[in-house]
Amino acid sequence: KQVQVGDEKYTFDTPEEARKFAEKVAKEKNLKVTEKNGNFHVE
């Protein structure tokens, strides 16, 4: 599963790991997490 933050992409083995990372980054940057096709976008 992938997490996209701006132009950066991070790959994780499980959706749970990806979601945790996305939520942590979103909180730090005051952004929101959206899920698209099983991948997460922080925007």
Rank of each mutant, 00 (worst) to 15 (best):
N37F: 06
K9V: 15
G38S: 02
E28I: 09
K29M: 13
V5C: 14
A22R: 02
E28R: 05
P15N: 11
F21A: 06
K24E: 13
T14C: 10
A18P: 00
E28P: 01
F21C: 10
K27Y: 10
N39I: 15
N30G: 15
F12H: 02
K9Q: 12
T34V: 14
Q4H: 15
T34K: 09
K36Y: 09
N39C: 13
G6P: 02
F21D: 05
V33G: 03
A26V: 01
D13C: 13
A26D: 02
K27T: 10
N30S: 09
K36Q: 11
E17A: 10
D13R: 02
A26H: 01
E17H: 02
F12K: 01
E17P: 00
G6H: 07
K24H: 11
A26I: 03
E28S: 08
Y10M: 05
V42N: 04
V25D: 02
E43H: 10
T14S: 12
V33E: 03
F21I: 05
K9T: 14
H41N: 08
E35M: 14
V42T: 05
E43Q: 09
Y10V: 04
R19N: 07
Q2G: 08
Q2T: 15
K9C: 15
G38M: 02
N37Q: 04
L31T: 08
V33F: 09
V3I: 03
E16Q: 08
N30R: 09
F12C: 09
A18W: 00
L31C: 13
A22S: 00
K27C: 14
G6F: 10
G6E: 07
F40S: 04
D7T: 11
V3E: 01
E16I: 05
T34M: 11
P15C: 14
N39K: 08
G38E: 05
E28N: 07
R19G: 06
K29H: 14
D13Y: 03
K24P: 01
A26N: 03
A22M: 03
K29C: 15
E17G: 05
T14I: 02
F21Y: 07
V25E: 06
E23Q: 04
K36N: 11
T34R: 10
F12R: 00
E35V: 14
N30P: 02
N39Y: 10
K29L: 14
K27N: 11
A18K: 03
K1Q: 09
V25A: 06
K32H: 12
V33C: 13
G38N: 06
K1H: 15
V42E: 04
Q4M: 14
E28Y: 00
E28C: 13
Q2W: 15
R19F: 08
N30T: 04
E35Y: 09
V25M: 12
E23T: 00
K9D: 06
K9A: 10
K1E: 03
F21E: 05
V25G: 00
Q2H: 14
K36P: 03
F40R: 04
G38A: 01
H41E: 11
T14N: 10
D7K: 12
F40L: 13
K32T: 13
H41Q: 12
A22F: 04
K29V: 05
A22N: 00
K9W: 15
V42W: 02
T34G: 06
F40K: 04
G38R: 00
V3H: 01
E35H: 09
V33D: 03
D7P: 08
A18L: 02
N30Q: 09
D13K: 07
R19D: 06
G38Y: 00
G38I: 00
R19Y: 07
K32S: 12
Q4I: 15
E28H: 06
K20S: 12
A18Q: 01
Y10G: 01
K24A: 14
A18I: 00
E28K: 06
A22I: 04
K27A: 13
D13Q: 09
Q4R: 11
K32M: 12
A26K: 02
K29E: 10
K27I: 11
K29N: 13
P15R: 13
N39L: 07
D7M: 09
H41L: 14
F40T: 06
V33Y: 06
V3A: 02
L31W: 12
K1N: 15
G6W: 06
A18M: 01
T14V: 02
P15Q: 13
D13V: 05
E43W: 08
K24C: 15
K9E: 08
E8A: 11
E16F: 03
V33M: 09
K1A: 15
G38K: 01
Y10P: 03
E43T: 12
V5T: 04
K29Q: 12
V33Q: 03
E16Y: 03
E43M: 11
K36W: 08
V33H: 03
Y10L: 05
G6L: 09
K20D: 14
V42L: 10
T11N: 10
K32P: 08
E16H: 05
E23G: 00
D7H: 10
K9M: 14
F40P: 06
Q4T: 14
G6M: 08
G6I: 05
E35C: 14
F12T: 01
V33P: 04
N37T: 02
G38C: 10
E8K: 14
V25P: 00
E8C: 15
T34A: 08
G38H: 03
K1C: 15
A18E: 06
N30W: 05
K9Y: 14
A18D: 04
N37L: 07
R19L: 12
K1S: 15
V3P: 02
E16T: 06
K20A: 13
N39S: 12
R19W: 05
D7E: 12
K1I: 15
E35N: 09
K36S: 12
V25Q: 06
K20H: 12
Q4P: 01
A22K: 01
L31R: 07
G38P: 04
K1R: 14
F12L: 01
N37W: 01
P15H: 14
Q4F: 15
F40Y: 11
F21R: 04
D13P: 10
K32I: 14
V42R: 00
G6K: 04
A18N: 04
F12N: 01
T14A: 02
A22P: 05
E43I: 13
E43K: 07
G6Q: 06
T14P: 00
